[in-house]
Amino acid sequence: MTKVLVLAEAKNGKLRSVSFEVLTVASRLAADGEISACVFGSDAERHSKELSKYGAQTIYIAENEELDDYTPDGYKQALLEVIEEMNPDVILTGHTSIGKDILPRIAARLDKALFSDCINIETDDGIIFTRPIYSGKAYQKKKVHDDVVIATIRPNNMEAVENPVTAEIIKLPVTITDLRAIVKEVVSKSNGKVDLAEAKVVVSGGRGVKSAKGFEPLQELAGLLGGAVGASRGACDANYCDYSLQIGQTGKVVTPDLYIACGISGAVQHLAGMSSSKVIVAINKDPEANIFQVCDYGIVGDLFEVVPLLIEEFKSALEEDAVTN
């Protein structure tokens, strides 16, 4: 009978939705077996109800204020106690900041493999995990040969399905000793300038932007979407912006979720720097421009008309969000 353990994570007093997604994966792996969850911190118990709603039959709680902030040493000690207590066959958590920090240490301690950032699981013939490699340019299916299976699951990727059960709650008296690294403070990232290479949204301008001033609407759009501004070499060469913004073969390579190319023709050297973006939007007044060959969405038109409209429409879409949330 398979015993699955899920390390659940709370943030700002609430369980993270990835924990429910991982519990759903757990129920597929457990089949008729047992699903347990563990959750740490001084007010960990309050999460037990929600965990049982997604199928956790046993919930291990380590109520210890040393576990209020994540530390590798603290979590390692607590998690090893849970593992000792229940002897799981499978250990899962989200591929999150915490998950990818702690499970490698646990896997090393137990001398097992760890399957990171998994996006799918098959159980027909042994356990096979699917995981993206090369930034999603390829997918790999890996079969497990270890006796204990350890994996982190990519968030926002698999659906969380409710599966209410009544849970047994087990409080483990863990003593945390010798924290070798401690968190002094957590600061939410200041809304300073977003780094181009890291930005989730990049709004780029080319020679079609026509002047340094022409970049202003692009900056506004980027600011609105929490992104950064980039440029083609055409724009840099024409002195509309700094070379540090250049994207392409002789500039930076970016892979944002959204790339908006404004007044860029789409030369191969430019494409070399942005074609792996998740969604590419092109705005160009020339319907024949090469950029339309690589974009996901294209608008044929004058960027000085289109970009202000985009700003307006995004504003109202984002405001609606703020209201409904």
């Binding site: 789409g266 030369a267 191969v268 050297q269 090469n290 060959q293």
Partner: peptide
């Protein structure tokens, strides 16, 4: 086949 200037020219 590709784009203007995308061969040796580019």
């Amino acid at each position: 086949k590709n784009a203007i200037g995308s061969g040796a020219t580019g």
